[in-house]
Measured scan of single mutants.
Amino acid sequence: AEKTGIVNVSSSLNVREGASTSSKVIGSLSGNTKVTIVGEEGAFYKIEYKGSHGYVAKEYIKDIKDE
């Protein structure tokens, strides 16, 4: 049951290796980017990222929809 969301930041949002603010940053997404959410862990969504997965803070994702 995948969902999509939109990155809701003015600059960019860090994509992390794990569901923690201390996890390594593996990339970033600019505002209004559409993401595919494959799961959630605590305050983070697990998303599809560059052929693999990454984690982003839930508070910066809006317009969550079921695909």
Rank of each mutant, 00 (worst) to 15 (best):
A1G: 14
A1N: 13
A1S: 15
A1Y: 11
A1W: 09
E2N: 13
E2H: 10
E2L: 14
E2P: 10
E2F: 07
E2D: 10
E2A: 12
K3I: 11
K3F: 06
K3P: 04
K3Y: 05
K3L: 09
K3M: 08
K3S: 07
T4G: 05
G5L: 04
G5Q: 03
G5F: 03
G5H: 04
G5M: 05
G5D: 02
I6W: 08
I6H: 06
I6Q: 05
I6S: 05
I6D: 02
V7H: 02
V7Q: 02
V7E: 02
V7T: 08
N8G: 10
N8P: 04
N8E: 09
V9A: 12
V9C: 07
V9E: 07
S10C: 09
S10A: 15
S10K: 11
S10H: 15
S10M: 14
S10W: 06
S11N: 15
S11R: 09
S11E: 11
S11G: 15
S11T: 14
S11V: 13
S12C: 08
S12N: 14
S12F: 11
S12P: 09
S12Y: 12
L13N: 02
L13S: 03
L13V: 12
L13R: 02
L13F: 03
L13P: 06
N14H: 13
N14Q: 13
N14F: 11
N14P: 15
N14V: 15
N14W: 11
N14S: 13
V15W: 02
V15I: 07
V15G: 00
V15M: 03
V15K: 00
V15F: 02
V15Y: 02
V15P: 00
R16P: 00
R16E: 01
R16S: 07
R16M: 15
R16H: 15
R16F: 13
R16K: 06
R16G: 03
R16C: 05
E17C: 06
E17I: 13
E17W: 08
E17Y: 08
E17A: 11
G18T: 15
G18M: 11
G18Q: 10
G18R: 12
G18I: 08
G18K: 12
G18N: 12
G18F: 14
A19V: 05
A19H: 05
T21R: 15
T21W: 11
T21Q: 14
T21I: 15
T21P: 14
T21V: 09
T21H: 11
S22K: 13
S22G: 14
S22P: 03
S22E: 14
S22I: 15
S22C: 07
S22Y: 09
S23T: 08
S23Q: 04
S23P: 01
S23W: 03
S23F: 06
K24E: 09
K24W: 05
K24M: 10
K24P: 15
V25E: 04
I26A: 02
I26T: 03
I26V: 07
I26L: 11
I26F: 03
G27F: 10
G27V: 02
S28V: 14
S28T: 14
S28Y: 11
S28N: 10
L29A: 02
L29D: 00
L29K: 01
L29V: 10
S30H: 12
S30E: 10
S30P: 15
S30V: 12
G31A: 15
G31R: 15
G31L: 13
G31S: 14
N32W: 09
N32K: 08
N32G: 14
N32R: 09
T33M: 11
T33A: 15
T33L: 06
T33E: 09
K34C: 06
K34T: 13
K34D: 03
K34R: 15
V35C: 04
V35E: 00
V35R: 00
V35N: 00
T36R: 14
T36K: 13
T36Y: 14
T36V: 12
T36S: 09
I37R: 01
I37T: 01
I37H: 00
I37S: 00
V38E: 03
V38K: 05
V38H: 05
V38F: 07
V38N: 04
G39I: 02
G39N: 05
G39M: 05
G39C: 05
G39F: 04
E40G: 04
E40D: 08
E40N: 05
E40Q: 13
E41T: 09
E41R: 07
E41H: 10
G42L: 06
G42D: 10
G42Y: 06
G42R: 05
G42P: 03
G42I: 03
G42A: 07
G42S: 06
A43W: 07
A43V: 11
A43C: 07
F44N: 03
F44S: 03
F44Y: 11
F44A: 03
Y45T: 01
Y45R: 01
K46F: 05
K46E: 08
K46D: 02
K46R: 09
I47T: 01
I47Q: 00
I47Y: 00
I47R: 00
I47M: 02
I47A: 00
I47S: 00
E48A: 10
E48N: 15
E48W: 12
E48L: 15
Y49D: 01
Y49P: 00
Y49S: 01
Y49A: 01
K50F: 09
K50I: 06
K50T: 05
G51M: 09
G51Q: 14
G51A: 08
G51I: 05
G51V: 04
G51C: 07
S52V: 12
S52T: 12
S52W: 09
S52N: 14
S52G: 14
S52M: 14
H53G: 04
H53I: 13
H53K: 06
H53P: 05
G54E: 00
G54D: 00
G54A: 12
G54M: 03
G54S: 03
G54F: 03
G54T: 01
Y55I: 00
Y55M: 01
Y55A: 00
Y55H: 02
Y55E: 00
Y55N: 00
V56N: 00
V56P: 00
V56E: 00
V56D: 00
V56W: 00
A57F: 12
A57I: 12
A57C: 06
A57T: 06
A57H: 09
K58M: 08
K58L: 03
K58C: 04
K58Y: 02
K58P: 01
K58V: 05
K58A: 06
E59C: 07
E59P: 06
E59L: 14
E59F: 08
Y60M: 10
Y60E: 06
Y60V: 04
Y60I: 03
I61D: 01
I61L: 08
I61N: 01
I61F: 05
K62A: 15
K62R: 15
K62D: 11
K62H: 13
D63Q: 13
D63R: 08
D63S: 09
D63F: 10
I64S: 06
I64R: 04
I64F: 09
I64L: 10
I64M: 08
I64V: 15
I64C: 06
K65D: 10
K65S: 14
D66Q: 15
D66C: 07
D66I: 12
D66L: 11
D66W: 07
D66G: 10
E67C: 06
E67Y: 03
E67V: 15
E67D: 12
